[in-house]
Design a protein around this nucleic acid. Structure first.
Length: 273
DNA sequence: CTAAATACCTGATGGC
DNA sequence: TGCCATCAGGTATTTA
């Protein structure tokens, strides 16, 4: 489900639902583990804590509780929703009961997601955060020259390179294909063959695609829902993803598909070189 | 060191 | 209706 825009949509939904700050008065988890075991002493660590802010870094959702932060990665099918009163659904795995009467629920059918509790002072050095590259958007966002440098001498495909979170964060399988289409670069192109101009176009395309998707409330291919329970709208304007055999919006050539970097990949053989 | 394959899960879909 | 194979938006870990 979630690449950067979907995580951002979940974040906005929760902030909108809550009236921060909110105090945690209860915590429940299902009998099944997520991708990694829950941190120890999670319950005693969370009860009484106050959620001051909810933020996002890369594809991580971050609950800022002052001295501690609760970090949540949504994996492939993870999602948070707010309910009042509590109403459980299939695949609910974790919930936080708040003093206001509201409840936050983490749902994850495939359980590829995970949670961790960190001291804020150890946040940047943590195993989850320390290797992350720049965001694709914003004041400290990826610079074209830095992307260009990252591509030098790299034998891997440009698609694999932009999906590698050490180079730029937040770009997953859908937005990788989309960004490469708007930059006019073939997904299978060797990273080291990228020109400065292509690096510049790709940097711009990633920022535009991600920003636009955030404004549309994310993409819904299968089952993504925002905190209010409604779907995203970005899928209605996907240029290539999932459009195998359909005409390119620019040149009408049928869209190609093939597995690249281990994932379904879509491109136009005329518009992308 | 790099790059690619594997593993972790459940559910939806399509062919027979 | 059932059964089986395939695919699904991520990424840490293992293998080559």
């Amino acid at each position: 489900m979630p690449e950067l825009p979907e995580v951002e949509t979940v974040k906005s939904g929760l902030i909108n639902f809550l009236d921060l700050p909110e105090t945690i008065i209860g915590m429940q988890k299902s009998s099944k583990r997520l991708r990694f075991p829950y941190p120890t002493m999670l319950k005693s660590s969370l009860i009484g804590k106050v959620i001051h802010r909810i933020e996002r870094r890369a594809k991580y959702l971050i609950f800022d509780m002052g001295e501690y932060v609760l970090l949540s990665h949504l994996g492939m099918t993870g999602n948070w929703r707010g309910t009042e009163p509590f109403r459980s659904e299939q695949h609910d795995h974790f919930s936080l009961k708040l003093r206001s009467g509201k409840v936050l629920i983490y749902n994850d059918a495939r359980r590829f997601g995970y949670l961790d509790l960190l001291k804020k002072s150890e946040f940047y050095e943590s195993r989850w955060i320390q290797h992350l590259g720049p965001e694709p958007i914003g004041p400290k966002g990826l610079l074209a020259e830095d992307l260009f440098c990252a591509t030098r001498k790299k034998q891997t495909s440009i698609k694999a390179l932009i999906m590698n979170q050490e180079n730029v964060v937040g770009v997953g399988n859908i937005y990788a294909s989309e960004s490469l289409f708007f930059a006019g670069v073939r997904p299978k192109k060797r990273a080291k063959r990228l020109t400065r101009l292509e690096a510049r176009k790709l940097t711009e395309s990633m920022a535009e695609v991600i920003q636009s998707a955030i404004e549309q409330g994310g993409t819904t291919i299968r089952d993504f829902k925002n905190a209010g329970g409604s779907s995203g709208y970005f899928q209605t304007q996907l240029a290539v993803y999932g459009r195998a055999g359909q005409p390119c919006h620019k040149c009408a050539e049928p869209i190609q598909t093939e597995v690249v970097a281990g994932r379904a990949t879509y491109w136009c053989r005329i518009c992308q070189k």
